[in-house]
Amino acid sequence: MSPKRIVLRFGIDSTVKPIVYRLVKDYDLVVNIMRADVNPKKEGMMVLEVTGDRSEEGLDYLRNLGISVQDLNQGIVRNDEKCVMCGACTGICPTGALYMQRPSMEVGFDGDQCVVCLLCTKVCPMKAMEVHL
């Protein structure tokens, strides 16, 4: 069972629900929180890695609560029209999702490693890193 990386976005009302507990307890999933921005009475987001046979059921449970569930790979997209492969992002990317390929010195992007920290969107001089959440 390979891990599934997802981005959750939830509104003010679902922030109070113990969703991680439910995923572990009711659906027997292994949950790894990679990034979370949860505040009382505010919209929030969470990047999760879930592993387990019943992961689809668990995700359906989240959707039924009105939480948006998106595949992580679609969250951050590089606009290849804008990117000039300068490499400014490779120094700041904490997971190495954006990396220099040597010796070609072209910038590679491995969406599986991305944790949606959004640092690249601020650093990119060309504004080539786009958020689709």
Binding site: C86, A88, T90, G91, M105
Partner: peptide, 11 residues
């Protein structure tokens, strides 16, 4: 110390 370029070698 990690280094990163600012200008494009491929361009």
């Amino acid at each position: 110390v990690i280094t990163a370029p600012l200008s494009s070698m491929s361009r």
